[in-house]
Amino acid sequence: MRKSRKTTAETRQRIIETASEEFRRNGIEKTGLSELMAAAGLTHGGFYKHFESKEQLAEESVAFSIDSMIESWRRTLSNARPKRGLQTAVKEYLSTNLRDDVASGCPFAALCSEMARDDQSVRETSTTGFLKMVDLIAGQLGGMSRPAAQKEALWMFSSMIGAVVMARVVTDPEISDSILREARKHLLRPSKDIR
């Protein structure tokens, strides 16, 4: 009996969501299709019914994880007290919870070096998502022109990604915590008009 289109679409989405986590946890290159499909509760043979290649899945799973992060940020920004949304989002991003939750955390912090070496479609998807995040952050910066807010947001988001990456790399927990703490201090310094 043939699967319905709805069931096929649900299975495909489950593969994308599983890949999103597995790629962030283990890396795109090191995640094998057999392991990935098993994590999704499926057989390896079913992969090519849904995707032409691992690269296609990488592109779609990176897009999914970026879109999920953007949606999470939007919720945080809208649910926070007035003029505190970005402060809350930055504090949550530069937290030990996000640092330690690689599989569900920021796809840029988890996959940046792989994204840079991946095929063009993954890089384009990553670039588009990065710029959406920059726009989201820039929209929260008051007291400056739009071009100035864009530049500040580029610096802020890049710094946040770098801080989380290094906090994951270092082996000393105190240094790791210090990286996150100092990044929060600098990004949230009172001289910024952060809404």
Results as ranks from 00 to 15, higher is better:
131 L>A: 00
174 E>W: 02
175 I>A: 06
156 M>R: 07
143 G>T: 09
110 A>L: 10
171 T>R: 07
116 A>F: 03
106 C>Q: 08
114 E>C: 08
170 V>D: 00
169 V>D: 01
114 E>W: 00
105 G>S: 10
119 D>K: 09
107 P>D: 07
148 A>Q: 15
118 D>K: 01
161 I>G: 03
74 R>T: 13
151 K>F: 11
123 R>M: 13
80 A>I: 12
137 I>T: 06
156 M>C: 12
138 A>R: 05
110 A>S: 15
171 T>G: 06
174 E>D: 10
172 D>R: 04
147 P>F: 13
168 R>S: 01
82 P>L: 08
90 V>D: 03
128 T>F: 03
174 E>A: 13
74 R>F: 11
143 G>Y: 11
93 Y>A: 09
118 D>Q: 10
145 S>P: 07
80 A>W: 09
147 P>V: 08
154 L>T: 04
67 D>W: 00
175 I>P: 00
87 Q>T: 13
109 A>S: 15
154 L>H: 12
80 A>K: 12
106 C>K: 05
79 N>R: 15
121 S>E: 03
83 K>Y: 14
118 D>W: 03
170 V>L: 03
121 S>G: 00
129 G>L: 06
172 D>S: 04
84 R>P: 05
144 M>P: 04
157 F>Q: 06
149 A>S: 14
104 S>K: 14
121 S>A: 15
88 T>L: 14
80 A>Y: 09
70 I>C: 05
90 V>S: 03
83 K>P: 02
134 V>Y: 03
104 S>Q: 13
77 L>T: 09
84 R>T: 09
146 R>C: 01
104 S>V: 01
89 A>W: 07
107 P>K: 02
120 Q>V: 15
126 S>L: 04
153 A>V: 04
76 T>Y: 06
161 I>T: 14
90 V>A: 08
95 S>N: 14
157 F>S: 02
163 A>Y: 04
155 W>T: 10
109 A>D: 08
147 P>M: 12
160 M>G: 06
170 V>P: 00
138 A>W: 03
144 M>Y: 05
175 I>L: 13
82 P>A: 12
131 L>I: 01
126 S>W: 09
79 N>G: 14
90 V>C: 07
133 M>A: 02
175 I>T: 08
119 D>E: 08
102 V>E: 04
109 A>W: 11
158 S>T: 14
103 A>W: 11
154 L>D: 05
155 W>K: 03
78 S>H: 12
135 D>K: 03
78 S>P: 06
67 D>F: 04
173 P>E: 03
152 E>W: 03
156 M>H: 01
143 G>H: 07
86 L>I: 15
144 M>L: 15
148 A>I: 02
76 T>K: 10
125 T>L: 02
163 A>I: 05
107 P>L: 09
97 N>G: 01
175 I>F: 00
85 G>L: 11
151 K>L: 14
85 G>T: 12
173 P>G: 01
70 I>A: 08
71 E>G: 08
107 P>G: 06
132 K>T: 01
98 L>Y: 12
155 W>Y: 13
110 A>H: 07
162 G>R: 11
132 K>C: 04
120 Q>D: 06
164 V>W: 04
89 A>Y: 05
131 L>W: 06
100 D>R: 08
160 M>C: 04
93 Y>S: 09
88 T>W: 05
154 L>P: 00
154 L>I: 11
138 A>T: 06
